[in-house]
Design a protein around this nucleic acid. Sequence first.
RNA 1: GGGGAGGUACCCAAGCGGCCAAAGGGGGCUGACUGUAGAUCAGCUGGCGGAACGCCUUCGGAGGUUCGAAUCCUUCCCUCCCCA
Length: 406
Amino acid sequence: MGMLAPREQLELLRRGTVEIISEEALLDKLAQGRPLRVKLGVDPTAPDLHLGNAIVLRKLRQFQDLGHEAILVIGDFTGLIGDPSGKSETRPALAPEEIARNVQTYREQYSLLLDPVRTRVVFNSQWLRPLTFYDVIRLASRTTVHRILERDDFAMRFRQHQPIHLHELLYPLCQAYDSVAIEADVELGGTDQKFNNLMGRELQRELGQEPQVVLLTPLLPGLDGVQKMSKSLGNAIGITEPPREMYGKVMSLPDELMIPYFEYCTLVPLPEVRGLEAALREGRVHPRDLKKRLAREITAIYHGAEAARAAEQEFERVFSGREVPEEIPEVALSRAALRDGRMRLVHLLAQLELVDSHSEARRLVGQGGVSLDGQRVQDADTEVSVHDGLLVRVGRRRFARVRLTA
RNA sequence: GGGGAGGUACCCAAGCGGCCAAAGGGGGCUGACUGUAGAUCAGCUGGCGGAACGCCUUCGGAGGUUCGAAUCCUUCCCUCCCCA
């Protein structure tokens, strides 16, 4: 298939990016008329993609659709260092079998958003592990401590006298070397990756390669509206979450995030998004209704329009109408656990796994957060009668239906 | 190598022999209000226990002193600062 003209490609690629370093360089590369090698470095943990990841992945997909090649670099070796943001944990080295097994997982997960045919999955231990100490020293001589300390998290930690381990300083270098190893033409990343990606450019130039173009995508704030979306912070919306979950989570976003989400997470054309922004600002649209549209748009991308509509109806019933969800997870409970058809409430909640501990159950009950068949219960220590189909609700959104078994 | 300061619950941070499951703040959870938003108000925020000023585990690790230790001693590990 023929490729679009470089300018047209650039025009498409430019959207939804924060920065391209540099556009001229990208144009030059595109003008070479060959498929570019577009690199994206990813975490070695088993992927569980969320809307934040989706931004950069969809950008990568766009490259693929334009005829370029995606290279996912799994940072299994850099994982030994742990991302120096100071937040993530270092990870033990993966055994070869694990790696082999993981490739499959990555392929599956990423093919949800990428074109599998044009995706290469590689592990950076492949080229980083064989390096000798001599090689590492040579490599390290290509940059300076001051240069590395410019990275904001290092700079900050240095200023605040927080520990910075020597090997952490090597992290950007490792990532840069990845670009050299695969001879990347373009590296994608969130804005927090700017330093690392630029390091790739520098190292490539040092070693006689044409420097990669760095294309940065925005970081998406998570449900809390403050920190970037991340699974470990518990503020993420996973792209494989069921429609109802997804829809509900979007509805719980802070209002201020609506427009950015429209812009980065939906297919709504940009001019229209600007229109919505104005309407919202001028009070011509109820924020809730706009958010419902947002929730619908996002859910539809991953589950289809049909499912999105159903999720919306469900949402209206449960939260606007304060009714019970249509589908409630059933939890099996043995009749043997009952005494005269009754059971202590605390035990019941624990058995149904609606609470983490008996103490938590007591607290929740005491706070009026628990109801049985719609009746609020106040005493955690009384026995309650349990029948097949009993509806148990904890807090706003935890539900379970009892299924009695022999 | 020498000298000094530190390591407390999810995070920050008080406590410095009993009244400490451990102040305060953040975060989180529940309730009221509401648009499952925000703001606000109230409560909760180690576990076990049918109640308790009850029991168990927790204050970097391991020992010890004491009727009793997060708090004192010994030792080990870790971090920061200054000097070399």
